[in-house]
Simulated scan of single mutants.
Amino acid sequence: MNIVIVSDVFGITPALIKLKEKLGVTIIIDPYNGKSMDFKSEAEAYSCFIAKIGLDDYISIVLKALASLDGKTTLIGFSIGASAIWRISLTNENNFIKQAFCFYGSQIRNFTQIEPCFKINLLFPKSEPHFDVVELIKKLEAKANVKITQVEYLHGFMNYYSNNFNNTGYQRYVTLLQTITR
């Protein structure tokens, strides 16, 4: 089975590589073609992503990388990576995507009409500055193939480089992912 991480706007970082090793990940898909960007802040990472890539182009990058895989695949996405997974959940050619875990995909709020074609676990933070998380959950919770968890942590809690990194939350969900992806 393949396990694929779809990164956030930071792309590949030393911490993400460590997570890859912990989870036995097959590949990391990132917006910058594997180049380490060494961003100094979330604002810098986000600005670069918006200026150079954007969500639609990132979706194309993700689809191209997934096309090279054989066998059942579990996707794990963070932030914009989670939003990209949500968008590609419209199809599941050859049923190769087994499941997805999407952490704090805030752009999902703009695509609530999507009906996922594979099992997708959405993990939303306790709050978001730009929208009401509880209202979004209400819009999504009755959809087939969707399981939603609202965690007690903030957007970015799984990213060591985020201001909202939370080691307790990180350890908890790494353990959960290790159990589920084995």
Rank of each mutant, 00 (worst) to 15 (best):
F131S: 05
T112I: 13
K147H: 09
P116L: 08
F131A: 08
F124S: 07
Y153G: 02
E128M: 08
F124D: 07
K139Y: 06
A144I: 11
E141P: 06
L140Y: 05
P116V: 11
K126G: 02
L140A: 02
Q150L: 04
N145P: 06
C117L: 12
V133R: 00
N121L: 00
R109K: 15
E128N: 09
K138R: 08
T149C: 05
K143C: 07
P125I: 04
Y153N: 03
C117Q: 15
K119I: 12
E141R: 12
K119W: 03
T112C: 10
P129V: 13
I137R: 08
I148G: 02
E135W: 04
P129N: 10
V134R: 10
V151S: 11
Q113M: 15
N121Q: 01
E115A: 09
E135D: 12
E152D: 10
E115Y: 06
P116A: 07
Q113D: 14
L122V: 01
S127V: 08
R109C: 10
F124W: 07
H130N: 14
D132Y: 02
F124I: 10
I148S: 01
I114E: 04
K138I: 06
P125L: 01
L123G: 01
I137Y: 03
P116E: 06
P129F: 11
Y153E: 07
V134K: 14
N121P: 00
K139A: 14
P116I: 11
L140S: 01
Q150C: 07
Y153T: 04
E152S: 11
L140C: 04
L154W: 02
S127L: 13
N145Q: 12
N145R: 04
L154A: 13
P116S: 05
E135M: 12
E115K: 10
V151L: 07
I137F: 02
E152T: 08
K139M: 14
R109Y: 05
P116F: 07
H130L: 14
L154C: 06
F118W: 03
K126L: 15
E115V: 15
V134S: 14
F124Q: 06
K143L: 09
I137C: 04
E128W: 09
F118Q: 02
K147F: 12
K119A: 11
A142R: 10
C117E: 13
A144F: 05
A142I: 11
E115N: 15
F124A: 08
E115P: 06
F111L: 13
Y153D: 05
Y153S: 06
N121C: 00
L123W: 07
K126V: 13
T149K: 11
Y153F: 13
L122W: 01
R109G: 05
V146H: 02
K138T: 05
V134Q: 14
